[in-house]
Nucleic acid binder design. Structure first.
Lengths: 339, 339
DNA sequence: GCAATTTAGTTAATCGATTAACTGATCCGC
DNA sequence: GCGGATCAGTTAATCGATTAACTAAATTGC
């Protein structure tokens, strides 16, 4: 009685068969359903508050309107949230829901995670891998449609989206160049993290194009955290010819660079301009003065990945696409012309 | 051929009926299945790499091994990630997966989100609401088992878990008291955010128990961000009898307090001790010196919520439980005895 | 005016599991 | 040696949709 109404209940209320009811509600079956009947069925469904049981539908159609989201460390990075949110919003707009699995980065767990998703007959998978640039798609994926988020394959056989690190780096360096800076230092990490190489290379190219020698302008430290950012900046700023501006590998390191500048009595931005990467909401706007930083477009990448997956569900023959998502500069108050 | 094997394939390979195969694999049907047969079926399943189709199973059993996670702003707060992760881990250990929906805080969307989850026959729902203390369970939930995460109902009719704000506040204040501080200031917000009142009241009680008058020790500012933390601290520290220690409403405000102290030439912790709340990983350990802060146990709360939900799925008659999750103090270097 | 086509449906098979109801053996006590 | 348990299965119904195959009436073509 108080149970959820089934299609059979709707059909009975409208005085038709379940087949007719199904076709009327889903607009299938071509011209077989008269418009009067269609309206009658719709009215009955609305009246009863009918909601199709997607489990039953999924069994028949093999489509569940669910997308698997496999993350290799879903929550430990603050970025992941924005990726999930972007993916979620795009999915929701198309009537899909996200089924999440975190693999804690264990390769062995990934296969198990994909199997768990496939058991539930997800329509496709978005694989989000933080801190990696190039990966192999696990064989467990089989023929399940898949899009990579923040990663790509070596051969480009799978659609993928990654941030345009080079573009973002060029953009923040252009902020400095625009203000008149030539001697631009770079503090980065020795770790083999995603994007280190791209940002470093692009910085080198920038200096090279200006004819500025990079000697004494690069510091590499152990890890990408605040303490090492501090130490790296001290090193960079105590050299013989110190830079007038610093490009930091990321915001956390920039936080340490701010402290080093304060200790050395350097005012930001008048004595030292600083730009950075990531635009983390807890750091970049909270520093004083606000930090100019290239934003990692995680929300947009999440959206893109799901939309691309939906496109591939519609047309499995479509060619895979490798997308570079622009990194817009969040302009704040850490850049000024050199003295 | 290359399709996923079905139960019928396993049954055929083992030379039994699908009923027998089902019972053998699920250990159901009591003594009806001989141990030799059971092994034969298991071997066949392993051989074929059989994975049950949970959609088909769900249709029959009405259980999908999926839990709905409804968040009212899943990703905008950095805490949400830890909640999701805790919930995810607990679910995974029990063979469940999380189906996520974000409602962006819109009450109207919540009903729609719950309906979308129910269509997919989730076994239960965890409702995570950031920034709220007391909520009403949406009527759309019907008889679906539900646990509240970081929120509770007025009447206690639903199981719920929230952080022990009073306990956490007492603990950080005890850090200060233990170092010998008596005049402890508090910088908080005027916003009606979750926990403001609890932290403020507990601070008042602490002073009261010591017989310390609160005059001039409380500053309330517009918002809970770094800039207002800075302004609040300036106000507090420029009074006639300034406190020897400050308890900040949260880490973001503490970040501003650090800046104020630096500008006033006050060394932390020798001239001024600071404690705070939230223990955000991007802030508390990154400040210099490291900030002592009461941690919001989001991971543990996420775990607890799912485990409680699983308990209620096993025993729907079980009494609802209101749980207070302890907030452990992350001890760092921002506390020292007063001069 | 009759065959062919179109219209507007219905009936029944199907997706892949679980499970209630049924069926032969075998065993056991008396 | 016979009735009732017990054991070890099988058969068939079922979950709630979708859809292929079929049907009856109305319309059209010539």
């Amino acid at each position: 009685m108080t149970q959820q109404p089934r299609l059979a209940d709707v059909a009975k209320a409208a005085g038709v068969s379940t087949a007719t009811a199904s076709m009327a509600l889903n607009d299938t079956g071509g011209t077989r359903i008269g418009s009067a009947t269609r309206e009658r069925v719709r009215a009955a469904a609305a009246e009863l508050g009918y909601r199709p049981n997607t489990v039953a539908r999924g069994l028949r159609t093999r489509r569940t309107q669910m997308i698997g989201f496999v993350g290799d460390d879903v929550a430990t990075t603050p970025f992941a949230g924005q990726m999930i949110r972007g993916a979620h919003d795009a999915a929701r707009e198309a009537g899909f829901l996200l089924l999440m699995v975190d693999t804690s980065g264990e390769a062995a767990e990934t296969g198990e995670a994909i199997a768990a998703l496939q058991e539930r007959q997800i329509d496709g998978v978005v694989m989000a891998t933080m801190y990696h640039q190039v990966i192999e798609v696990p064989s467990a994926i089989g023929s399940t449609p898949c899009v990579l988020l923040d990663a790509r394959t070596a051969d480009g056989s799978v659609s993928s989206v990654v941030p345009d690190e080079r573009g973002g780096t060029r953009a923040v360096l252009a902020e400095l160049a625009g203000a008149g800076h030539v001697r631009i230092g770079h503090v980065t990490t020795r770790e083999d993290v995603r994007a280190r190489g791209l940002r470093l290379e692009t910085w080198r190219e920038h200096l090279g194009a200006n004819g500025t020698p990079a000697d004494g302008l690069l510091v590499e430290v152990e890890h990408t955290n605040t303490q090492f950012g501090y130490e790296g900046a001290l090193q960079l700023l105590s050299g013989p010819e110190r830079p007038t501006a610093i490009f930091c590998f990321n915001d956390r390191m920039a936080m340490g660079v701010y402290r080093a500048a304060a200790e050395l009595g350097l005012q930001i931005p008048t004595d030292l301009s600083i730009v950075s990467y990531d635009d983390q909401e807890l750091i970049a706007p909270a520093l004083h003065p606000g930090l100019t930083s290239a934003a990692l477009p995680h929300y947009d990448m999440g959206r893109w990945a799901v939309n691309e997956l939906l496109r591939r569900l519609e047309d499995p023959e479509a060619d895979p696409v490798q997308h570079l998502m622009p990194c817009p500069v969040a302009r704040r108050d850490s850049v000024a012309p050199p003295r």
